[in-house]
Design a protein around this nucleic acid. Structure first.
Lengths: 113, 113
DNA sequence: CGGTATCCGGCCGGATACTG
DNA sequence: CAGTATCCGGCCGGATACCG
């Protein structure tokens, strides 16, 4: 259970899956689409998701090389929950930020210079 | 957006929220319910969730002390998505484990002794 | 283009000890 | 009971260099 949750728990996984929502993307497209991810983390994330059977990796033997990533049916089933989470995050972003500001304002810091 | 996702991304947050699904729990009950979590991580997780306004922390001035945690309305809205994720994880646990085994069996290790 | 390989600083989180 | 404080090892992930 924890091992499955840690799959979802990886924020990069969620973002990558979200990008593959309705189209196949190649590596460089994903790299540009998921802002802030390093090439290393994108590679590791994709390998993990491929290993879990959530997406397929297709190598086209061409010059220059081209690798396409697409969701599997299993990945598509997760997409629904992921999209729901994304919508929740978007819908309550402001409210959460307000809560944080209020909390930080009322709960005085314990360390004093 | 990333900051919101990292809130969900914390596996402990998901598990704690799931435990508060239909009842208030005190600290020690949560500690027992969420298997594997250390006292430190439980405290940190609860503070984070309280700061974001997803749960309330109620201190009862008694001896021995007693602290209850309960979801806020905002926390309850997240609960739906969290439950969906949990159900997805449960439903596809076996399938994912099979995929991992198959992947590990076919993709030979790159390091050879 | 789409990766590996390697180095390494930071912080995550467990263990332990102490307190109101 | 429900925390805080402190230490510290491990691994996460960025930066960089190189390859098919």
């Amino acid at each position: 259970m924890l091992q499955i949750l840690s799959l979802i728990g990886d924020k990069w996984s969620i973002l990558v899956i979200g990008q593959l929502r309705d189209r196949t993307l190649r590596f460089s497209e994903l790299h540009r689409a998921v802002k802030g991810i390093s090439q290393r983390m994108l590679t590791l994330t994709l390998r993990q998701l491929e290993r879990d059977g959530l997406l397929t990796r297709t190598v086209h033997p061409s010059v220059p090389p081209r690798v396409d990533y697409a969701l599997t049916p299993l990945g598509a089933t997760l997409l629904d929950s992921v999209v729901a989470l994304g919508e929740w995050a978007t819908a309550h972003r402001q409210e959460i930020n307000d809560n944080r500001r209020r909390y930080d304002a009322t709960h005085v810091p314990r360390t004093r210079p």
